[in-house]
């Protein structure tokens, strides 16, 4: 943004000088400041909607939420100020702890998905037949609606007639009734998340790998570096920004997992084993009308996600927006 200043000023100064030349003895810069003011008005008008939207739909709700988290409130009646009591309750609320733990468990899908995606991207970087077809196939689950995918996998995880167990039966494994089994319900959801997100990470990795200069790899090969060494010393460091971007954005997204849980296990799963943080908040707020308490949980989750996002902004150099 610093770059805008110089040419813009010179341009306007030229305009002002031309005007000044026509109107004799007009003080230099008067015309330019009038032009400036008109431009400023237009500029403000052009950002007015997003700024207004920010105030109405983000800032006001956040302040509202902060206050509501200190109250007992059913969403309709009066808000009763109870200080920090919601936050104290939250510390001892086993269901909330369970839902937070479940959410952390779901994050396991991120390293698994990234490792698979990187391997796939490396494979796709070779000159093979049918690569575009493969790329499309791997990418289709990404664009599919989460509602339809959750419905599909709920049925696929059916203990007796589901695709997963029918497949396992072919190789002699007697699979559990995935979503009704407190041990297997979370891994089942992780597998589904990996399946759905794989194509996206693969695509970003592929783009990053293709940007690795071939000469670098060839030079390393001439120096006698093996395939694994070349991968460790060149490819992996070169794709690190993408890894970083994917890790952070996927933590933010997975921390908000909701639709899969609500559709596949409407009650939060056996022993509440699948309920995510957002699912628990949604249930408290919109099924049990504990709006005040639910808001305090939403604030805690929001702060955690805010911190992760902040880390992304601070560490990701590509993302640093230049201010003047």
């Amino acid at each position: 943004m610093t770059s805008t200043a110089t040419p813009a000023t010179t341009g306007l100064a030229t305009a002002a000088r031309m005007k000044g030349a026509r109107r004799k003895k007009a003080p230099l810069g008067e015309g330019s400041s009038r032009l400036h003011r008109s431009e400023q008005k237009w500029a403000l008008a052009f950002v007015a909607l997003p700024v207004l939207g920010y105030l109405l739909f983000i800032l006001y709700p956040v302040l509202f939420a902060l206050y509501a988290s200190f109250t007992r409130w059913n969403g309709l009646g009066a808000m009763e100020f109870i200080g920090l009591q919601n936050y104290v309750t939250l510390l001892g609320d086993e269901r909330f702890h369970q839902s937070m733990w479940n959410t952390i468990f779901y994050l396991l899908g991120i390293p698994i998905g990234l490792a698979l995606a990187l391997a796939l991207a490396l494979a796709m970087n070779r000159r093979l037949v049918g690569l575009t077809v493969f790329r499309t196939i791997y990418y289709v689950p990404v664009i599919c609606s989460i509602a339809a995918i959750a419905i599909l996998w709920q049925w696929a995880y059916n203990g007796d007639f589901g695709l997963v167990n029918q497949f396992l039966a072919m190789i002699g494994i007697d699979g559990p009734n995935w979503l009704s089994d407190a041990t297997w319900s979370k891994p089942a959801i992780v597998v589904m998340m990996v399946w759905k997100g794989l194509g996206y990470s693969m695509l970003l990795y592929l783009a990053a790998i293709q940007a690795v200069p071939r000469s670098l790899l060839e030079a390393a090969e001439l120096d006698g570096a093996g395939a694994w060494q070349r991968f460790r010393a060149i490819t992996l460091p070169m794709v690190r920004p993408v890894t970083f971007f994917l890790v952070v954005t996927q933590i933010i997204a997975s921390a908000q997992i909701f639709a899969e849980i609500q559709i596949m296990t409407p009650g939060g799963g056996p022993e509440y084993s699948t309920a995510s943080a957002v699912f628990h908040i949604w249930r408290q707020a919109f099924q049990y009308q504990q709006m005040g308490y639910a808001t305090s949980m939403a604030i805690v989750l929001g702060i955690l996600i805010f911190i992760i996002t902040l880390i992304q902004f601070r560490l990701n150099k590509r993302n640093s927006f230049v201010l003047d």
């Binding site: 956040v62 509202f64 939420a65 969403g75 921390a255 939403a298 989750l301 929001g302 805010f306």
Partner: peptide
């Protein structure tokens, strides 16, 4: 940086 779940109730 503020996730939708935090805003949804208000």
């Amino acid at each position: 940086m503020i996730p939708f779940p935090t805003l949804m109730i208000p």
